[in-house]
Write a protein that binds this DNA or RNA. Structure first.
Ligand SMILES: [Mn+2]
Ligand SMILES: [Mn+2]
Ligand SMILES: [Zn+2]
Ligand SMILES: [Zn+2]
Lengths: 141, 141
DNA sequence: ATCAAATTTGTAATCATTACAATTTTATAT
DNA sequence: ATATAAAATTGTAATGATTACAAATTTGAT
């Protein structure tokens, strides 16, 4: 089953000039909704693009973020994680297996309160931490 | 005007054995509600405790965090910030001046949704980013 | 006073991310 | 098509926050 995602147009829509590397990275994010780190993206693409540089991965992700084509998640204090899903949703990180899950959420009320305080809100991040259902049922350690 | 905060008892209540360094750090957090970094705490205490080591500051903050005596904030991808206020509230980071402000918030609804998905929630962090009222009125650059 | 445990300290290591200059690729002008 | 300039990519070195670790100091119990 082939992906119906048009990476080329997705980049153009965000004023990003497509290149082999940029298309590969945005496609990787489309196909891997696990909120990968820059290093994971690099490891996942190095076979496909043997000349790929880790610097390019970082530069490209920063460009995507600046152009609001992806989210940059700091739920983990060690690595920044990336998400092609820029819609309003929360994230849950399991303290046992480390996976980051999506959680449906609406954050309008908090944004409204921030506006009342004179803040102009550009980004909203709701991070939850705890134990996922798998790790809860069969705890590791 | 003297602080009415009993640092000694606060540590004991969280099963933390008080020491000169630990008392100084928890007092610093009580008096500085700016969500300081480990480095800022170190810089703010080095005159008062000239032998203080940065390693001790990190170790102590990690201990406080493990004992749930403070919050550990990852709103900034560069530095972890710390907060003695463990009550339910959100944070707003100004992308211009870098300050981190408190924002009142109730996150029960999202926690409920997470529970429905089988997640056990231990921590909740709501981070907003944008421009504070000062920076909004007189933009810098 | 003595000994062991806990805490603190200083230094070195780790490691994610960025800086930077060289190289390669792409686009534009002749 | 060729020359030239601009943009993108690459490799390596630097940065900087945090941690690892072992030595030194302090604390607490006998
Ligand atoms: Mn997501
Ligand atoms: Mn706070
Ligand atoms: Zn898990
Ligand atoms: Zn500001």
């Amino acid at each position: 089953m082939k992906s119906d995602f048009n990476a080329y147009n997705y980049l153009l829509q965000h004023d990003i000039k497509p290149s082999v590397q940029r298309l590969a990275i945005i496609n990787y994010l489309y196909e891997h909704r696990t909120h990968p780190t820059a290093d994971e993206i690099y490891a996942g693409l190095i076979d496909q693009i043997p000349t790929l540089s880790k610097t390019t991965v970082y530069n490209t992700l920063n460009l995507f973020y600046q152009q609001a084509a992806i989210l940059s998640l700091t739920i983990d204090d060690k690595n920044v994680r990336f998400d092609i899903d820029t819609s309003d949703h929360a994230h849950f990180k399991c303290l046992n297996c480390g996976k980051v899950f999506d959680v449906p959420a609406v954050l309008d009320s908090v944004t409204a309160i921030a506006l009342e305080h004179g803040f102009i809100v550009a980004e909203k991040h709701l991070y939850l931490k705890g134990y996922c259902s798998s790790c809860n049922e069969s705890p590791n350690k």
